[in-house]
Structure formats: structure tokens, C-alpha cells
Amino acid sequence: MNRMHVKQLAPPPLDHAGQSGPIAVELSDASVTFGRGDRAVPALSTTSLRIADGDFLALVGPSGCGKSTILRLVGGLVRPSTGVVVVGGREVAAKALRIGMAFQNPTMLPWMTIEQNVLLPLKIVEPFRSEFRQKRRNAFRDKAHALLDQVGLGGFGPRYPWQLSGGMLQRANLYRALIHEPRLLLLDEPFGALDQFTREELWSTLQTLWVTHRPTVLLVTHDLREAGFLANRICVMSARPGRVIDDSSVPFQRPRTIQMTFEADFVALNQRLRDLIVNARSAGTPEGGHGPA
């Protein structure tokens, strides 16, 4: 595995908002219920949540509490049953948003090389799409080469997905979500299936990317260290049907280092979040836990 060397960047001004309109996300009294009648599953109870332009918010909470549902709401993949979801100043309409998304499962297309996989969003999102058609693929390919090098996938561009390890695929997955420089990035446990060391490496990569491009990021994770390392703000959700029960800002200075995650302040934050989730778990109905098994 290539060792990643993340360039140490000067911390950017946090109030920086001059980019071509990063997106603010706002859920107002949004709730989601899947199915109807007897089969209705309340996945998310009435929730209001605001993410500022260029902010980095992590969402934590017990399993099944509706974190992925919030992500899918913001991405315009499910409609709110009640309330509204506003992204970038208008109600969610995915078409114009070019949102970057990555899940725990890398979902690379097996018939494409890693490079082609990573470039896939450019075949879909304007203005790259038209440029792609105008035979400017080579320019994109050079760009892809440079980017793959940067994330430690140099030389793996022409390989096929099954020739890469899980960690490398996850890198490619993350990069596919970023290739078109999205203004909003939605990440659903993107590092969940990785070993500790690869995960920490990718945290640093993501931090660097965020610091450089300052997209708005919504990260769902089960790893409190991950949330503390990456996010500006951490929201804790209650058990299903979830709502936000705690909203803390993460004061640590950037760029953060792995070392910092072992310091007292950081550990204290983790502990507090942990207690919140443990309480939320025991307060809510345990998942599928009605009656005897």
C-alpha cells in the first residue's frame, strides 16, 4: 500500500465564503415515513437541521435511527413525508446540484478501469459532460492521473476494480465523489469497512480535500473519533424514528493530526458523545425488539 503524504496546508479562513456559491442545507420539520397503513415505518421524526455554506457536519447515532435517510433526503433521493428540504436556496431538485456521494460499498463498475470509474461523474455532470463529448478526454485523463497520484492510487488508473484492495477501492470511491468538485458532499460511512490505519490515512486525505476546496460536507459515521477528527459540528440522533438531540461544535484547530485524537479534550468530547448515544439507544425501542424473538 502506498503511504500517503498529505501536504500540510495553512489553515484557511473559516469564514471563507467566496467560492462559487457553496451550498447551505436546511431541513425544516422534515420527517420520513416509508410505506403506508399498517406497513408504515417511521424512519425519521420531525427534524430541523441547518448546515452552513462550506461547513463539515458529522451525523452520529444508534443504528437504524435515520442517518442514511437524512442523507438521502438531502441528496434528493427520497422525498420528505412532511416538511421541506432546501439545498442551495431551493427545494431539493438533484438535477442542478451535482452532489458528490459515497457509500460504504465502493460500487465500482467492473467493466471500467479505475480511471474510467473515477471519471464517470464527468460523463454525467455539466459542464464537463459537453467537454467530454468534444473529445477533450485526454485533458481529463491527465487530470485524473494527477489526482490519482495525489490520493495514493498512482499507477492504478488502468487497473480494473477487482485488481485493487478494499482500501484502494474506497479511495477511488471517495475520489469519484470529488472529481467534479461538488459543492456538496454526502458521505455515508465511507470508511466503515476499512482497517484502522487505512481509515486514518483517508481521514487526512479528506481533511486536506475539504480544507482545499471547502465543499459543504455531511458525513454519517459510527466512529466518534472519525467525527471528531473531521467535522466542525457533530449532531447526535435519537433512536428510531430519529431526531437530532445534540449539536456540538468541534473546536480543535486544523489541520488536525491523528495525535490530537488521543489528547484529553478530544477524548472528553468522544466520551460525552458516547454517553449520549448509549442513552439514546436504551431510551428508544431497540431495533426490531418488540416482544420475544
Partner: peptide
């Protein structure tokens, strides 16, 4: 088609046809 991949593409603003052409058909 893997639902997660479809989500990724839809969030990018892909049309049904885009998904069919780039993912459905080759698969």
C-alpha cells in the same frame, strides 16, 4: 443495478437514460 450506485448517479443529476446507458446496458 446496484441501488447505491444508482443513488450516486442520481445525486449527480443523472437522468434515467444516463443510468441506463452508462450502467444498465453494460451490466
Amino acid at each position: 443495478t446496484e441501488p447505491e450506485l444508482e443513488d450516486v448517479l442520481k445525486a449527480l443529476g443523472a437522468s434515467k437514460f444516463d443510468i441506463l446507458w452508462n450502467v444498465g446496458l453494460p451490466r
